[in-house]
Write a protein that binds this DNA or RNA. Structure first.
Lengths: 197, 197
DNA sequence: CTCTCATATGTCAACTCTGACATATGAGAG
DNA sequence: CTCTCATATGTCAGAGTTGACATATGAGAG
């Protein structure tokens, strides 16, 4: 019944309460790395969750120019989140523009294809470096790394991002190699096996 | 102007012409691995592409119970496809249910989390085995592996799928390991470095 | 003879998401 | 004094997507 965005918001509120504006910021980073949403989706979705009794709000004065609504997850909301995590993962329809382009790449002349792949490779390497920097920050945080603490999930989600980006970089290197090109010089973030775990 | 689905269809028709029904099948496999679509989207989209002069159809009798429309890409369609491949990749909003769940996994008791991760790991390993089998088929095909042939893109797209799935399996093993569990026994498709290139 | 399946093409209501539009104030820069 | 930015909350048109509904025939199984 609850949408994926609804579950993302419940997950956010399970960590700590927040206003719509605050949740919008937290959706941008870090949630946006794996589930993007605008404030124009978030405000109506919060209203829907409240209608279903999964969240509750109290008006807080003085926090900004307008009356601010501070949302909290309810017991029913926690149950909904738990039920979702125990439900089977819906095999999601894949939508990957990058692979679609590669699947069409044979129509380009090889030099253009090579230029395309090199540009993409650089972008993935940059993203990888960003994730590795974040992971270093998370790893440096003291304590609370037990599996029942939010920090554990932060760490695990980032590790997924890192492994995924490394796979993208390796994939592009593989393709560039097969097109007879040379990979760009190694930069920060191109690392292949630093001890990030 | 043209949607992503439109480009997927142009890419499909650049390989060879086909009817709406035929394109629906080809969208299921292999295109569905990276861009899913139903026939209820495909028929209207073909009409839109035709309106824009990017494809053309001729009615073919005898192919089925109804008059069948056989679509072909036009010169304008090929130009549109080329222009798309040369345009910058739109940084797409990420929507990854799997990572969202992991980010919420700290709310589950560790045994449940472990059971969840083991089930997902098995599913990714199965998908990996499927891709590797397809890759073996593609690799066995004679000739035409040059970068300007469709087979080159088939091969490259599959390689992306394989590296991506391997990363997912490795990620889940990493998480299972950190939850203090033991990985399930190695099965076909769990391979870590077969010479698939 | 009937049932089911593959062929073959379409429509439609509901839901999600995007990007723009709209409103309003306090703080700080120039 | 004015401009811009962060705060803070919303609406809305349009596009994309899903899943069901709708129609119709030929081939093969039982």
């Amino acid at each position: 019944m609850t949408s994926m965005l609804g579950h993302a918001l419940l997950s956010l509120l399970a960590r700590r309460p927040g206003t719509g504006y605050d949740l919008t910021q937290r959706m941008r980073r870090p949630v946006g790395y794996f589930w993007a949403a605008n404030h124009s989706q978030i405000y109506p979705e919060l209203a829907r969750l409240e209608e279903g009794g999964l969240v509750r709000h109290r008006v807080v004065e003085g926090a900004g120019p307008r009356p601010t609504k501070r949302y909290t997850i309810t017991a029913a909301g926690r149950r909904a989140l738990d039920g979702w995590l125990r439900s089977p993962v819906s095999d999601p329809p894949t939508r990957d523009e990058e692979t679609l382009r590669v699947w069409s790449l044979w129509t380009l002349d090889p030099p253009s294809a090579l230029a395309y792949l090199r540009a993409r490779r650089t972008q993935h390497a940059t993203r990888l470096a960003e994730y590795e920097a974040l992971q270093a920050e998370v790893a440096a945080e003291r304590g609370a790394h037990e599996p029942t603490q939010p920090l554990w999930s932060d760490h695990a989600a980032l590790q997924g991002g890192i492994l995924g980006r490394r796979a993208e970089v390796a994939w592009h290197d593989w393709m560039i190699d097969r097109l007879g090109g040379t990979a760009p010089p190694t930069r920060a973030g191109d690392s292949v096996d630093p001890p990030t775990g």
